[in-house]
Design a protein around this nucleic acid. Structure first.
Lengths: 245, 245
DNA sequence: CGCGGTCTGTGCGCTTGCGTACCGAGGCTC
DNA sequence: GAGCCTCGGTACGCAAGCGCACAGACCGCG
């Protein structure tokens, strides 16, 4: 509780012990990240890790022919750059800012140093990584078995959980890139949700009006991942569900 | 090199330093695993980790409606039970023996103890886990964008890499479960490969006749994962590519 | 106020894969 | 050798999603 309150905005940072927090704070730098910013490219050596606060970042995989797919999404519950402490230094995926906002960044060296102390931070990061693995696995099966309609619901809920409000800035084209489907497919799915009065949207702004009914329509994948995140990370003490404004 | 030669059969065990190997060897137990054996169920507490030798194990995700999908495959290059050292204790996936054979198993306690020494083994396991993450991500996009034909090629090659010979015992029905598609889809894809003279099969036995042409037909996903495994695990010293008979 | 670019809506033909059903062939058991 | 069960082959209608093309709507900018 003696931490600078700002660090509470990211769950992982918030869960650090005082000595850990004291060691890292001098190196943490708050940055603003605009929509579309690429934090790192596939195969690129990472210079920083990022702890999102109000921003949301997608881990995107881009194939040779240009088609793409989101494999995970990271908000203020997590960290970007797990390859650094896992030992691979890089990953074959790209990290793109999906919702503009703030994050703390930390030089790679400092993160590795703290990780190698094998303290609480290491265990925290590993458990977070396992939660991320669950998200990726679930995405794999969801891609295989569920309709665009259901996946759109899942995607909206994942974003909503990582946002302060009920509004997101995102075109259907971009959502299509994330889900790895056609833009027209998203148009159709979004149209159904609008006709049902669950969302409203216009030119890159989506507002969720009725979250409960969104949860009725989503496939099981959303719930599975959510429960697993809760299970793995619920003991994080100050449990700030959303950043306060 | 003073290790019992048998341990060389699994790449991770083979890469251990002498003291590590000496600590673990007393607890390692060689087991035979028949086709179809379930090493652990979704959500089940793990009592052992497994280091496959000649066996191949699939990480399978089964959905509420019974449909399923393979999210990763583990052979003698890896380990089963990463949730133990990642801190989650369990995962929402199921581990099923896809190709009968031998493995070493180690009680969960011993693995955790060794991991917590933060030595070479820890770094090895973490790098392996990152490679596994790559495999899962790639599976997610492959599920989205590639045809059953291509995915069958990928699946065959992944199995082939983890086998001693060129023959696998596996029905089309089971392959369909792994890929998360219909059995008839596999029949059609396999028929094309047979007509082209690339494989031959009958009643649960598949023989690969022309691996180079299999590699021509596969999607990029296979290569990406293979390269990443090589990059992350290539410094493992005794590089026994396949168990010798 | 008009222009241009971006975002969304819609239509159409095509391919892939799904669900269902049925059948024959090979191998195992008794 | 008869019977049974598993495995693989095939067919048909259906639905989802794709690629492409184009049109209208909205916004910002000059």
């Amino acid at each position: 509780m003696a931490q600078p309150p700002m660090l509470q905005e990211n769950h992982l940072l918030a869960a650090l012990s005082e000595p850990e927090s004291a060691r890292l704070t001098p190196y943490l730098e708050r940055v603003n990240m605009p929509l579309g910013q690429v934090l790192y490219e596939s195969g690129e050596q990472l210079r920083y890790v990022y702890f999102p606060v109000t921003a949301i970042v997608s881990l995107l995989y881009v194939m040779e022919n240009g088609s793409s797919g989101e494999i995970a999404v990271v908000g203020n519950e997590g960290i970007l750059g797990i390859a650094l402490f896992m030992g691979g230094e890089t990953t074959p995926s790209r990290a793109v800012v999906q919702s503009a906002g703030a994050a703390y960044r930390l030089p790679a060296q400092q993160l590795k140093a703290e990780f190698n102390r094998s303290g609480q931070m290491m265990h925290l990061l590993l458990r977070y990584t396992q939660a991320l693995i669950t998200q990726m696995s679930q995405t794999a099966v969801c891609n295989r078995h569920h309709s665009v309609d259901q996946q759109l619901c899942r995607w909206l809920l994942l974003s909503l959980d990582r946002l302060a409000g009920d509004e997101l800035t995102m075109t259907q084209e971009l959502i299509a890139n994330m889900l790895g489907v056609r833009r027209e497919g998203v148009t159709a799915a979004a149209g159904k949700l609008r006709d049902a009065g669950i969302i409203e949207y216009s030119r890159g702004h989506i507002k969720v009006l009725d979250r409960p009914r969104l949860e009725q329509r989503v496939c099981e994948c959303y719930e599975v991942v959510k429960k697993e995140f809760d299970r793995l990370l619920s003991d994080i003490p100050p449990r700030t569900t959303h950043p306060r404004f």
